[in-house]
Amino acid sequence: MSHIKARGLSIDFPLYHLGARSLKKRLLASARVRLRRDEAAHEMNAHTTDRVTRRVGGEVVEDAAHRVVVSALRDLTFEIRKGERVGLVGHNGAGKTTLLRTLAGVFEPVGGFLEVSGEVGSLIDATAGLDVESTGRENIRLAGLFRGLDAAGIARLEEEAGSFSGLAEFLDVPIKGYSSGMQLRLAFALMTASSPNIILMDEWFLAGDTAFMEKAEARLTALVGGADIVVLASHDMAVIRRWCDRAIWLEAGRIRADGPVEEVLAARDAAS
């Protein structure tokens, strides 16, 4: 039985490689103010009035070890049951993709509890996992191996993904010679060739050309229809309305609203 349970889930994203020392200096001046405001907002326990929470991204703070960290997700508690289609909405940097990666088991939470039951298929990043030096056919094989398919399964995947992507003779060309559209076709074909219980999607898949998207539509519908749970992050409210029946509105790493799509979107419109 597929389900996702999160209790008090928190993710801190350390900023390591961008000169934390100089950044630290810059932050020390403003961090105190930001933190105090945030606490004030928290105490009010409502997200109605202030402008503070409308900022882009999570809180940038210093942790106990004096590292500069973005607290990307803070104290998320939710449960997703079988059959639910959840849309994640929010500004850039609100934590949508981080939450998807956390659900995929990539980022380990620093606080809280997370349980994901069911086979996860992550369609988070189109080209990650593709090896640009290898040919399309080798990449299909690789994707099959990563999923633990046997020889027959890989042959099937090659057949299916090869014909769906319509790459024909380009399948034997290294991917770095592909146009971005061709890469997307292959990535889409590969990622949609399996039928996982839980699908985690970022909005990249909407980026194809029109002719391909028409073809992709049917496949995507079948994929989503066959899955127990879908979690989809998007900026496009038409997409959210179309594919989802529940929406989670993230802001600065916190859940601001969670409920039926129309209610959440209405609250969001009212707030802006």
Partner: peptide, 9 residues
């Protein structure tokens, strides 16, 4: 990095 950030392996 690409594959590490994509799926749990």
């Amino acid at each position: 990095a690409g594959i590490i950030r994509q799926m749990r392996l």
